[in-house]
Design a protein around this nucleic acid. Structure first.
Lengths: 335, 335
DNA sequence: CATCAAAATGAAATCGTCTTCAACAACTCG
DNA sequence: CGAGTTGTTGAAGACGATTTCATTTTGATG
């Protein structure tokens, strides 16, 4: 392994000082075109790459951004994070940044000083982490809103549009009694999606029957138990929406176990377009959003912020309604 | 934001030099118990945490390890990586390391100098990356074997045991004509699993019919097309194994589309215990392995290597055979 | 041609830690 | 008591960049 080439080596090769080399590389001071050319050439020939540790030390920057994931068991397994991470990583690389996973319930001092900024996920309505990072002055952008109206640095999906199309879809299929399976109400995205659902009822002049709505964990079991809760009230929607695909799946399983067929006896709509949604039978009608792209946008936004560049905030990403097998024309029996 | 406290501040508070503080913190030189105690106390009171950039500069270490994922579209979405990452991150944190994703087809100079070592994934039989990282002297450990018998720094699942149990299972169910859906043969794990499958035939005194084995991509489509290839030969196994759950899923779908029921007309066995394997109908009989734990082991091994500590290599993790709905007693019609 | 501004480059300090080696103190032992 | 250990601490110099400010060179202007 030949010795690492430093800025001094480049300087010596060109016959200038490290200052000059640094200047051409960072574009701070004015440097004559001739000198610049020779420096650049030497950099190329010697294959010089600045030592990030040294740079980090003097600039008080680490050129590392983090994906912050609140520590709760196994959430990271969700492909949501993997996709976001992939998007972030690609963008970060372009800007000379690197991304780390911060899988924790806060920021230890040692971790805090190792990153320049964070991308937040899993935001709650009144998000404690948003407040926390704001307080400790850690720069961040959010994948979702965090209940703080002063913040504009976030990336979200156009939930509104997605739910609108989904509701219209089942409405056109003849459904008039729509139910809703809510995830934990503390999450911003749960409320946001539900809000749009209610708004659509108003727009369509449909009465919203609260008895057709219930809450559960964001899991198969949660979907099943919310479904059960609704049945326990002695009511039955002809179509049901779920906060997420995983809850929709749980609901479908619950229905099957109780002798109801999907979509013949009840239509089901999810949200997220999870991996499994197209595998399962019936495949799940859902709203697709591009988490990979959201990750890219979030990283771009964060890095722009760190580097002091402008960036259009917030970013609202388009979604796509994906009709599949779990929704169909209402059957006459149920009308 | 109060000013960052440095080693000098601690030294001043105690009335010693930075050298002494550094020594007690790094345990290099012998320091009197009394001094040590006072230094530690000051560190505590001042909430001193060493500046990693400075340390990185002088130690020529970054205290960052990477999870290397060969760049091919969307693999990162697989929860395999998310799980491994979660395990790695937890362990890394304990040792003061941080983990970054290297989602790329090599190591640019700038990235190379930002990590101390790598965890390799998706190993091939004659893995080019293994050779590459060996050549550039980048420390690494592998999640899987890489076709290099000199390497012992790897973590694998006890494939042998898993396949053994799976084969025994279907054998006991009466199946004698077993087929195999292979993923791309370049991958080490594909070959390894298949190898055990063949060995089991020998042990059980079963003839292995090569016509019942076919190759396809590691995807639903790949599983389906491999299944189709076998049928095209005019043969039909009573039970079929797949390199992965996703291929098994594709095969099941293919069978359904062609009027064959699983498991009634054919039993199917996967490998991995993917998320969806228990969701789908029929749920897939498979072999579970703990990728989270593998990630933990890999990180421990790598960090031990970097810090010059001993670590038992290689690590072979236990697996668990998970019988589900996709396998059943052979039907008399098919015998 | 003298003067002054602008352009280009360099010298030296700095970032916060670790490390080498020297210095000093205390102790042991003949 | 002096010499050699052993234990404890400090001084100074990296590590490899950036940055501030000074200096030199060049060019323009009256």
């Amino acid at each position: 392994m030949r010795k690492k080439v430093t800025i001094k080596d480049v300087a010596k090769a060109v016959g200038v000082t490290p200052t000059t080399v640094s200047n051409v590389l960072n574009g701070t001071n004015r440097i004559s075109d001739e000198t610049r050319r020779r420096v650049l050439q030497a950099v190329e020939e010697l294959q010089y790459t600045p030592n990030m540790s040294a740079r980090a030390l003097v600039k008080r920057r680490t050129y590392t951004i983090g994906l912050f994931i609140p520590a709760s068991p196994r959430v990271l397994s969700d492909s949501y994070f993997a996709e976001a991470l992939r998007g972030m990583t690609e963008v970060a690389l372009q800007y000379g940044y690197v991304v780390s996973i911060i899988y924790s319930d806060g920021l230890s001092d040692s971790v805090r000083q190792r990153i320049d900024g964070l991308v937040l996920t899993e935001l709650k309505n009144k998000d404690e982490y948003v407040q926390y990072f704001k307080r400790i002055r850690m720069p961040f952008v959010a994948l979702g809103r965090g209940g703080d109206p002063t913040l504009r640095d976030y990336v979200i999906s156009d939930t509104n549009r997605g739910i609108r199309e989904a509701v219209n879809h089942v409405y056109r299929l003849g459904h008039r009694h729509l139910g809703y399976l809510l995830g934990p109400l503390c999450y911003e995205y749960v409320c946001e999606r539900y809000r749009t659902f209610r708004r659509m009822h108003a727009e369509l002049g449909l009465p919203l029957d609260r008895r057709l709505c219930a809450t559960g964990e964001n899991s198969r079991e949660g979907g099943a138990s919310a479904m059960r809760a609704i049945f326990a009230r002695g009511v039955r929607p002809t179509a049901i929406f779920a906060s997420t695909d995983i809850m929709a799946l749980g609901a479908i399983e619950y229905l099957h176990e109780h002798g109801l067929r999907v979509p013949d006896d009840m239509s089901v709509v999810g949200f997220d377009d999870a991996d499994f949604s197209k595998y399962v039978r019936p495949s799940i009608t859902t709203v697709h959003h591009d988490i990979y792209r959201a990750g890219r946008e979030a990283a771009s936004m964060l890095i722009a912020k760190l580097d002091g560049r402008e960036y259009k905030c917030p970013v609202i990403l388009p979604v796509r309604f994906v009709p599949r097998e779990s929704t169909s024309v209402i059957s006459h029996v149920n009308q």
